[in-house]
Amino acid sequence: MNIFRLAGDMTHLFSVLVLLLKIHTIKSCAGISLKTQELYAIVFTTRYLDLFTTYISLYNTIMKLIFLGSSISIVWYMRHHKVVRRSYDKDQDTFRHYLLMLPCLLLALLINEKFTFLEVMWAFSLYLEAVAILPQLVLLQRTRNIDNLTGQYVLLLGAYRALYVLNWIYRYFTEENYVHWITWVSGIVQTLLYADFFYYYFQSWKNNVKLQLPA
């Protein structure tokens, strides 16, 4: 495992920890899109079906279980926890996320590495992950005051994606037969979606003002 991949996994892990910290200690999910969290829960459930069929490493298995468990528990907290659910910006979080799922499924049926159940689900999870951040970005744009933890959460997620792109470049040049077109294209699309957010985040950081996205 190279340094970019490890750093990518760690920023992903930190993003989840930041979100759990906000939910557990502040008992708030203000500014967090339940739609995006639901999509992530579906993404990890459909991608990690290979937990039952393929063993890669202990690291791989543990990380998969962490991402599965945390994404499902975050959705549960936002929907059912008696305190946390009250802070959810339901009226602002109106992105019709289920509309994203059908095109991703159709694309996965058409473009996959092999036409089997596991491979189609794997491709579906990659296409869905590429667009899963959209409801969160729309919610951020509507929120007047983005709190620090929410800003850091999205920043860490974006960093995780960017580090994975570096990891692919590194692996392409150092490993033989390392080619994953589906992962690369959907991963690059996903990273580009963060570009706008990155720009405004660093502007606000540089000028030392509160993060606000233009409407």
Binding site: R5, T54, I56, M63, K64, F67, N167, Y178
Partner: peptide
């Protein structure tokens, strides 16, 4: 038979 590459990333 066509072999798909191993998926060792998360």
């Amino acid at each position: 038979c066509f072999q798909v590459p191993q998926k060792d990333e998360l």
